[in-house]
Design a protein around this nucleic acid. Structure first.
Lengths: 225, 225
DNA sequence: TCCATGATTCGATCCTCGTCGAAGTATTTT
DNA sequence: AAAATACTTCGACGAGGATCGAATCATGGA
């Protein structure tokens, strides 16, 4: 009658303070222990103990820089798992049906890549253009896709050599469809931001598509925003 | 500073008793409140309150039959979400690396379909044979696939008319790759069991492939067990 | 070397929530 | 009708754990 493994993870995520920390880190950026303490509205001592437990369980990883300790999500698999929780997080099924379309549903970041309608659309568009081929073990980049992305300055070959998978799928809580994660997903968000095609809002994970972005995304990646 | 939605779901799964109930229901079968109380090692009153909360949140659904109330997972999306939690459930990353291959990793059921190496292999095989085509919104069945499954007595057209999606992907905690869920996944497990190609062990979710099954799976579905 | 700042550890406190027994409701059986 | 079974609601109890302040450790700058 011993508690199954999911209980431990659930308990970890179930605490409001830890959940706030995880939610804050969903944008993929690293934060110091004090920053997270403030964001969760809790004392430094409390935050420290929470962060230690999250790290120990493999949900977070930590990098010491000087006297600061920067915490971030351990991988985009963690982000993916958290997103899958949000499917049930919102409310009762009844309330979920009458839910409004929020900006977050339109376009947002998930860890370090795009999600929401835009994220799903991007994966769709790239697939229709024959740039991405979905297979069982995930998504793979076609030669055409490689050329397109290289043309936009993304160093695909460098990314491919990393330990991190080049392309992964992540189930979207708002669309209930997949969007593109992995190194490629991160590189694409990077590209869209530097080109000024999408603009991030500082406090939330929501992003907006610029007028130029709308056109460019359609022409380049076949996205119908 | 209000608690994010994931906290509520986490807290729900985080309780050992509720986790035991969910784990028990992962095989997809429905159980009465009393059965679940026994399986979780807890009184009837306690079980009842837990089941009410799980149902309210949309993780379980309930069907009243006479004086019995049968609880089961609300959908295979719940099973999919629980599997994604197990990726982090096992232990610390260090311990996870030296982990043995258990029977559960070889082949098991997840809700009402196959998972583990066999589940992943089945999806692989069907894809290689051109029976399934992976697309962004999920998997779709090709004409060739429809013919093959009908030939084995699966009433594909009937399944397609149901509200439940015909084919869905579910991330495997042991293989970290997708396996086949949805109505088709359920029908295939059914087929394999009635043909005697795999045999379920009663108490656990593990299944074993029979000698005849090994050959048949290879010939019919291109599975390399 | 000394102080300022970031982070962790420890001990004490407080509160949430899981637990059970008893009573109440619903449904089947006799 | 009455008894039996399945389940839920209610009230009270108790343990686990989240929280904080104070003390300690670690790093950087003067």
């Amino acid at each position: 009658m011993d508690a199954p493994p999911i209980a431990a993870v659930g308990k970890l995520i179930g605490d409001p303070t830890r959940a706030l920390m995880l939610a804050a880190l969903m944008d993929g950026r690293a934060r110091t222990a004090t920053e997270l303490a403030v964001e969760a509205g809790v004392g430094r001592a409390t935050a420290s103990s929470h962060l230690a437990r999250l790290t120990e369980r493999g949900l977070l990883c930590v990098a010491s820089q000087g006297r600061h300790r920067y915490f971030r999500l351990a991988s985009d698999e963690v982000a993916s798992m958290l997103e899958s929780l949000m499917v049930f997080g919102a409310a009762t099924p009844v309330a979920a049906r009458v839910r409004r379309t929020t900006p977050e549903r339109e376009a947002r970041t998930c860890y370090d890549h795009l999600a929401g309608r835009l994220g799903v659309g991007l994966l769709d568009g790239l697939q229709r253009k024959g740039c991405l081929v979905l297979s069982t073990s995930g998504v793979t980049l076609s030669t055409a896709g490689r050329d397109l992305l290289c043309h936009h300055g993304i160093e695909v070959d460098t990314l491919a050599r990393r330990r991190r998978p080049l392309a992964r799928l992540c189930l979207d809580w708002s669309e209930r469809r997949n969007h593109l994660a992995g190194g490629l997903g991160a590189a694409l968000l990077d590209l869209l931001l530097t080109r000024g095609w999408v603009r991030g809002r500082d406090c939330t994970r929501a992003v907006t598509v610029t007028r130029a972005g709308r056109r460019a995304l359609n022409v380049e990646f076949g996205v119908d925003v």
